[in-house]
Nucleic acid binder design. Structure first.
Lengths: 129, 129
DNA sequence: CTTGACCTTCCATTGTACTGGAAGGTTCAT
DNA sequence: ATGAACCTTCCAGTACAATGGAAGGTCAAG
């Protein structure tokens, strides 16, 4: 399986796959005589794992950590559990922040949508911000 | 007012203020004979405007746009209203996405917190992801 | 034999908002 | 006069996850 086929099979690009290899998220691929990368079938699963990790909000760095633990023959379960818990906390904080921001923007937007008779004064940039 | 004082007054750093000037978010400061920047009082307000814009979730690029419109003698109100509306839409989308992600992660985290007797199989990296 | 699709490496760049550090000039108090 | 604290410019780098492009090699079809 060449890199273009793997890219197609996994819904990504050849650029990205080479980037993943360079970033040690994928093991260095076998090579054909021509120098072309030659992937085994399970490469699809490996890329899918990366994608699932990303879908779970993990960074490539965190995914790399899991892979590394696994490489060392250990089961990364408890580490993964920790990562997920941490991610959950971050998400909750981020969501709370965004909700507060949404409220602020909403107020500003309301205010800006009914312009008052006195137009913007010259000494400020914008009455609404 | 020198740059360090303005930084202190606005709760930022001299580095950032120079960066803002270079990014055309602040007008080039007057200079003392020594070459030091010499800010007028209203610089505090200008920096505060940038901070309020950021607090409203605008990027520096968007803040720069507003400033530019104002510079051209126009009142940027309707533009600002548009930006705020756009920002509101983005925020809603982002919040929805994060909530969905939170749910996913929550499920994964739950699963990972009660490990099942059959341990991770060798052919997958992690049962939980 | 040539054309076009595919592959290789290497280097640079994107966007966002700064931050770090070097090398040197200024100001003020002691 | 000397040391600390401040200022200047310029260059480079941070994190993140790719993406773009140049220059060249390979392979299958027509």
């Amino acid at each position: 399986m060449r890199i273009g086929q793997l890219a197609e099979a996994t819904g990504t690009t050849t650029k990205t796959l080479r980037f993943y290899e360079e970033s040690r998220l994928l093991p260095p691929a076998e090579r054909l005589a021509s120098g072309y990368r030659d992937y085994a079938e399970d490469a699809v699963g490996q890329v899918a794992f990366i994608h699932r990790g990303q879908a779970a909000g993990l960074t490539l760095g965190q995914i790399r950590q899991i892979l590394k633990i696994r490489e060392h023959g250990q089961t990364p379960c408890s580490h993964v559990q920790g990562l997920l818990g941490q991610r959950l906390g971050e998400l909750d904080a981020q969501i709370a922040e965004l909700l507060a921001l949404r409220e602020t923007i909403f107020q500003l937007h309301e205010k800006a949508s009914k312009p008052e008779p006195d137009s913007c004064s010259a000494d400020q940039v914008c009455r609404y911000i």
